[in-house]
Design a protein around this nucleic acid. Structure first.
Ligand code: SF4
Ligand code: SF4
Lengths: 172, 172
DNA sequence: CTCTTCTCGGATATTCAATGTCCGAGTTAT
DNA sequence: ATAACTCGGACATTGAATATCCGAGAAGAG
């Protein structure tokens, strides 16, 4: 069982966006996390399609959350990026082979599929209990209360500073 | 999130084996479920490595359960086939980028990783509640109490019948 | 009002893992 | 002792996830 690695980036981006008052471009988020920009854009598009983040185009554009962080659960992010299809996909092999069951008896999922669905429901319920606000709070506590402040200070460097004449950011 | 499709076959094989008193060859299991024989063998090897099934070689060989069906949980099967690695793999992106946290603060998993691990633990706990015996019972109930009997009758066709002289099974 | 610049959005290659397949080692009944 | 049948691990193939690119569109500056 593998979970798309983009889920991790999506969660980080949501936590990051919850600390910004202004839209943040995708390129800044990618630079902050040290991940390839084009691929992160793909995940952000998925979040945008799920209406978790809103995109603003233009010069001061970027992404921002559409809801308060306390209204966004981890399950929302996971579903938005990884999709809603269940991990256990039934191939209906009970209808194949010499002992195939009558199709009329296969109208509802069998016991095995039901058990797996129940387990997956427990997983989703656990994720629905955690909100992005909770994650931000815990991340801040882990770093001794300095992470969120450093994050906001870093945002200031990318805030629209209209007086920057010839930004000599010749890095690349 | 995707779960290996071999998990489904492994669960079916365990339920099937719980109804047989004699070892069952992999080729018979594949024929019964209508899946490619060589690939099913791969999954059975994984089950064998986890000591869930025992393999007997030779002419009357095959696979059989090593424990009573009530002692084998669905989690055992899933772990044996799909592996024990967690679905959420942390890339430690908090240590990358311009705002990299001090490595000394990253000794324990961060809040995001902890939340995902908790959810996954709930999933595994739910699977550990279900045993193969429970599954067999429910499958039988779903079919009106005829599935297990049909299964055992089908086994009779492959039971060591020493009087078969020149089995003209020229199907393939 | 125009123009430039910056942004997102979807369509497009590449890489890795899961799927599917094969043949050799080993063991039992004949 | 022989022969037939079994499992076990090593080997191609396919699909999806990963990583990337360029065009459409909107906001702000001039
Ligand atoms: S529904 Fe149940 S019996 Fe049918 S293929 Fe899926 S797991 Fe097997
Ligand atoms: S441990 Fe937490 S902060 Fe670090 S990379 Fe994983 S999810 Fe992100």
């Amino acid at each position: 069982m593998r979970l798309s690695s983009g889920v991790e980036w999506g969660l980080h981006c949501c936590v990051t966006l919850s600390q910004s008052q202004h839209p943040v471009p995708a390129s800044r988020l990618a630079e902050l996390h040290g991940v390839p920009q084009p691929y992160l854009a793909k995940q952000l598009q998925a979040l945008s399609r799920a209406n978790l983040v809103a995109s603003t185009q233009g010069q001061a554009g970027g992404y921002e959350l559409t809801r308060p962080a306390s209204q966004i659960t981890a399950l929302d992010v996971v579903v938005a990026i990884d999709g809603t299809e269940p991990a256990f996909r039934c191939t209906e092999i009970r209808q194949r082979g010499p002992l195939a069951a009558d199709p009329e008896r296969c109208l509802l999922p069998c016991a095995i599929a039901r058990a797996m669905a129940t387990a997956e429901q427990a997983w989703r319920s656990a994720l629905a209990e955690i909100t992005v606000a909770d994650l931000a709070e815990q991340v801040d506590a882990d770093s001794g209360g300095t992470a969120l402040e450093r994050l906001q200070r870093w945002f200031s460097a990318t805030t629209p500073s209209p007086a920057s004449p010839s930004g000599p950011r010749g890095s690349r």
